[in-house]
Design a protein around this nucleic acid. Sequence first.
DNA 1: TTTATCTTGTGAAGCTTTTCACAAACAGGC
DNA 2: GCCTGTTTGTGAAAAGCTTCACAAGATAAA
Lengths: 219, 219
Amino acid sequence: MPPNLPSVSDSTIRRLSLYLRVLEELNEASEPTVSSRRLAELAGTSAAQVRKDLSRFGSFGKRGLGYAVDPLERHLREILGLQRRWPVVLVGAGRIGSALFEYPYFRERGFEIVAVVDRDPAKVGRRWNGVKIEPVESLSKVVRELGTELGILAIPADDAQATAEALVNAGIRGILNFAPVQLHLRPEIVVNEVNLTLELEALSFALHGSSRATSPERD
Amino acid sequence: MPPNLPSVSDSTIRRLSLYLRVLEELNEASEPTVSSRRLAELAGTSAAQVRKDLSRFGSFGKRGLGYAVDPLERHLREILGLQRRWPVVLVGAGRIGSALFEYPYFRERGFEIVAVVDRDPAKVGRRWNGVKIEPVESLSKVVRELGTELGILAIPADDAQATAEALVNAGIRGILNFAPVQLHLRPEIVVNEVNLTLELEALSFALHGSSRATSPERD
DNA sequence: TTTATCTTGTGAAGCTTTTCACAAACAGGC
DNA sequence: GCCTGTTTGTGAAAAGCTTCACAAGATAAA
């Protein structure tokens, strides 16, 4: 473990998450070790990048051998803060909210949707697999009672800013926002925007505007 | 319009998409012009960044005045390749597929899901709002008949690589991948990965590991 | 022990992206 | 027509990120 927390770039963190996914696969395949080259190949980056990313947090490899899969997986979980369980509150019980509630991969990583909230009175009171849908008014109570620090916003654009503020007031510190609006919140609140339209637009640009290739890889 | 296509970074393209969203809002609010400063504020970046981004594609502003909202919106649509309709094939009629099919913001930007495909025989044959769910075996036929160049992959991880290859063989040029695996395809195929778990993990890291703030803004 | 082979960890170089800062352009009064 | 106050467009500087390249550490075999 590094003595003092280094400032790490967002791209590094996102790659660590990819490495973790690859390591899980290797672990399941009972591969004992992996080289930076192979890890890079599987994660879609370069070997040097893998080594630089990991070296920010410590020396996890052995020269001549590579990295031991299982310990490295544990290190990454530790770095990403995944050794604990993260209770999550889901705001919005529409199509997207429902899909996210059922999404099996969240729970595998310790993210558990423990509360669902919606503004539609018709939906309030229903049960999703044991979790009762609560009215938005109960947000504050729910967050406090369940001790959730993470919230997922899966509601229409018009309501998003106000609801995000309500989440923050309730004590939420990180928000995953699926609503197509830029949220403006206090800087200490961590927000990740998932912009589905933008992703398609990036494809549209690539096919229409130019012909960029998405091909790094090497070392 | 620039004489020859400049090489544009991915981040620039993603910001252009954000600017477009802001401009639509401004247009609806009947604001005739906008300065780089205000646009930056609404999109969550810096004024200099806005000007640099736009200047890669031409001179759309007037000094002392700012940018005319409506023409700039049209320029951005043109740049992003959104003046046309993009038929899209959706692979996977599960929870996420269903949510994406109903997602209203795709159609607003010209992305229209014209075909749905699933490997589950129980789902095949059903109709979603006039679109019949086809078996995966028909992928090639469907893509060719409807002339789709974009595909959305909303299927479990185990099946994703093979299905992606099938999409490519059918003639698809761009893929939006929701399956939690790294796809390995020919470099001329444009792939955008949406990794929902990764997004939560980035939040987890931010709350756990360090206390980075997400606060640029200024000029 | 020595040699051959492998692979990490990491400064330094190279490249990309963002920010700075200012000349040039425009509008509106006076 | 001439000032005043704005705001763009853009080279240049700064910051950030990725790749290079190699010494150092590790194993295995002779």
